[in-house]
Simulated scan of single mutants.
Amino acid sequence: MPDVKVSVRNITRIYRAATTDDRVEGRGWYATAREIAESLDPQDPVRAAAVIAVLSPQLSWRRNVIEAQNAYAGRPIKTLGLNAEKARRILAGENPEDVVSGPKVRAFWRTIADPTDPRAVVIDRHAIDIATGRVLGDKVRGVLLGRAGVYDEVCDAYRRAARILSREFGTDLSPAVVQATTWVHWRREYAALYAA
């Protein structure tokens, strides 16, 4: 495997390169996701956030929302069977703490449930690519994230970047806002590489 290093510098560089529109979208991304959770389940948006999160693997955000709506409406859920089953278990009353698994999915749940949570950082393929400064293939990403402590290292890099950027921009930027903003910018700039 090539030498791959996680760098706060890469994250801050991408954040600084983001356009004003990217920053506006990034700042509101998880708040908008929380609003969707509230619309699905006004009595328990944390449960809805868990349903959204367990359905998220291998789905676009648009499709993720549609499938969460299907789950709440009792319609068939078109995603990985295990993930659909997890959504059904949560809706049947099982505690999301016992159902939501995996660091990325748990972080996605927590960040939708509380967009201001400073601990929850969603590390998806784009976030790891941003932190390493290049588009990695799925195999390299898998090997890298399979190493003990790497997921936490990437989360910490986003937390450190958020502190640096908060001071630099004179506003409180949570790790989730930094992750979402860099995600928005990165996907726009490098979308063609992911489609290939």
Rank of each mutant, 00 (worst) to 15 (best):
P2M: 13
K5N: 12
K5M: 05
K5S: 15
S7H: 03
S7G: 14
V8W: 00
R9K: 13
T12D: 05
Y15S: 02
T19W: 06
T19N: 11
D21W: 04
V24Y: 02
E25C: 02
G26E: 12
R27N: 03
R27I: 03
G28I: 00
G28D: 07
G28Q: 06
G28H: 02
W29D: 04
A33F: 10
A33C: 02
R34S: 01
R34L: 09
A37G: 13
S39A: 12
L40C: 11
P42R: 04
D44C: 10
D44I: 11
D44L: 10
P45E: 07
P45L: 02
V46M: 06
R47F: 09
R47Y: 14
A53H: 08
V54K: 13
V54E: 14
P57Y: 07
N64F: 06
V65I: 15
E67K: 07
Q69I: 05
G74H: 05
R75W: 08
I77L: 04
K78P: 01
K78Y: 09
L80I: 09
G81T: 11
G81W: 01
L82M: 04
E85L: 08
A87N: 01
A87D: 03
A87R: 01
N95K: 14
P96C: 14
D98R: 06
V99Y: 08
V100L: 09
S101W: 03
P103S: 07
P103N: 14
P103Y: 04
K104V: 12
R106L: 13
A107I: 03
F108P: 00
W109P: 05
T111Y: 00
D114G: 04
P115Y: 09
P115E: 10
V122G: 15
I123P: 00
R125T: 15
I128W: 07
D129H: 00
I130T: 01
A131V: 00
L136I: 14
L136T: 11
G137L: 13
D138L: 14
K139P: 04
V140A: 15
V140R: 10
G142E: 15
V143S: 12
L144C: 12
G146T: 08
R147A: 13
V154T: 10
V154R: 09
D156N: 14
R159D: 08
A162T: 01
R163F: 02
R163D: 13
I164D: 08
S166V: 01
D172Q: 04
D172E: 15
L173Q: 04
S174M: 03
P175R: 00
A176Q: 08
V177R: 14
Q179P: 04
H185G: 06
W186C: 11
E189G: 12
Y190C: 03
A191F: 15
A191T: 03
A192V: 12
Y194R: 06
A195E: 15
A196V: 10
